[in-house]
């Protein structure tokens, strides 16, 4: 898609000069610039008008609060980029948030039952990954649409969490949880460091390694990837398995933050889906990237924080997240129709 096709005109000194400048930009570039400018404007807007928003303490808080949704959004991004970004038939994992809830419950229940930390960790990460593997098998082997397979899984997993916890808060303490909840290094909290490390690892794997290239090829052009000898089915299955493992990893962070497993984790789905989809807008090719996903997660975090500080109901944040999902999905559908 080019600018000539979309007939976008930008304000500037003169129409001729603007067209000459924008003629070198693709539609993707313009979308990216507009998206980045919007993020910057929203941030500056809150910074200027909202007391206490632009302080180092508040900014560090928002980054720390973004760690868990950020890691889950990276898992969602992995599934989308491997399964393809078509929202109807492409990769998506609607069970991520519920999986985190179940994994957190397993961890807390195992600790309460007197299991040692290593056994509890293994059970938690294993269970989370198992949920991911079942998702992957449903999608790859049974050919069920990911949207439906993972929606069904979300319900199953949510039900299991209720059975396990009887819908109550289960307190949990262990040495690793103490380090995660109270530790800090160079002024940054443990959770912030975990987000940095996980993002760096994801960026290296996805953007600077042969497996990353194969994942993008699988999502972008599955037939071409298959012809080139890439094991498409196995990679898609693997992406769901890694996403499940990541959900369990995030669950341990969540238990550390709450000193317990708690109900209502499923509500996080909207923000992680919004972040992963919005993240595609920040990439040149309209595909999920680590940087794009992180910008989107932080954008949603700052939006939510700004709304809180302005005294606006958090219902508005849910509304804005829903609108963002709709806008990105609509833009993707529109682009595909024009492209086709």
């Amino acid at each position: 898609m080019t600018l000539a096709q979309t007939e976008i005109t930008l304000p500037g000194p003169g129409p001729g000069r603007v067209r000459a400048w924008t003629a070198t930009l693709s539609g993707g570039d313009v979308t990216r610039l507009v998206a980045l400018a919007t993020v910057a404007l929203v941030f500056i807007g809150f910074a200027v008008t909202t007391r206490g928003f632009f302080t180092s303490w508040n900014i560090l808080n928002v980054i720390e609060q973004s760690a868990i949704p950020g890691i889950l959004a990276l898992a969602m991004a992995l599934v989308i980029l491997t399964g393809g970004s078509d929202v109807q038939t492409g990769g998506i994992d609607l069970s991520l948030a519920a999986n985190m809830g179940l994994s957190a419950a397993i961890f807390a229940v195992a600790l309460r039952a007197g299991w040692g930390e290593p056994a509890a960790l293994a059970a938690t990460l294993g269970a989370g990954m198992l949920v991911g593997v079942v998702n992957g098998l449903a999608v790859v082997r049974l050919g069920i649409l990911p949207l439906l397979a993972t929606l069904a899984m979300s319900n199953i997993v949510g039900g299991l969490e209720l059975v396990l916890t009887e819908n109550t808060v289960i307190p949990a303490t262990s040495p690793i949880l103490n380090v995660l909840s109270a530790g800090s290094f160079l002024g940054l909290s443990s959770l912030t460091w975990v987000l940095i490390l996980v993002s760096t690892l994801a960026a290296v794997i996805l953007h600077a390694s042969p497996p990353g290239l194969r994942l993008y090829a699988t999502g972008g052009h599955p037939e071409a990837a298959r012809a080139a000898g890439v094991s498409v089915g196995r990679l898609i299955l693997g992406s769901y398995a890694v996403a499940g493992f990541t959900a369990a990893f995030a669950a341990i962070l969540s238990v550390s933050r709450l000193s317990a497993s708690s109900t209502g984790t499923g509500e996080m789905l909207l923000s992680i889906l919004a972040a992963a989809l919005l993240g595609t807008v920040f990439s040149r090719r309209g595909v999920p990237t680590v940087a794009g996903t992180l910008i989107a997660v932080l954008f949603i975090g700052f939006l939510s924080n700004g709304f809180q500080l302005k005294g606006l109901s958090s219902n508005w944040v849910s509304g804005v997240q829903g609108a963002l999902i709709l806008a990105v999905v609509a833009a993707t559908a529109l682009n595909r129709r024009k492209g086709g």
């Binding site: 808080n61 720390e64 709450l258 209502g264 809180q308």
Partner: peptide, 10 residues
Amino acid sequence: DQTQIAHIQT
């Protein structure tokens, strides 16, 4: 609970 913790931090 997650939200209330975030609110207390804020």
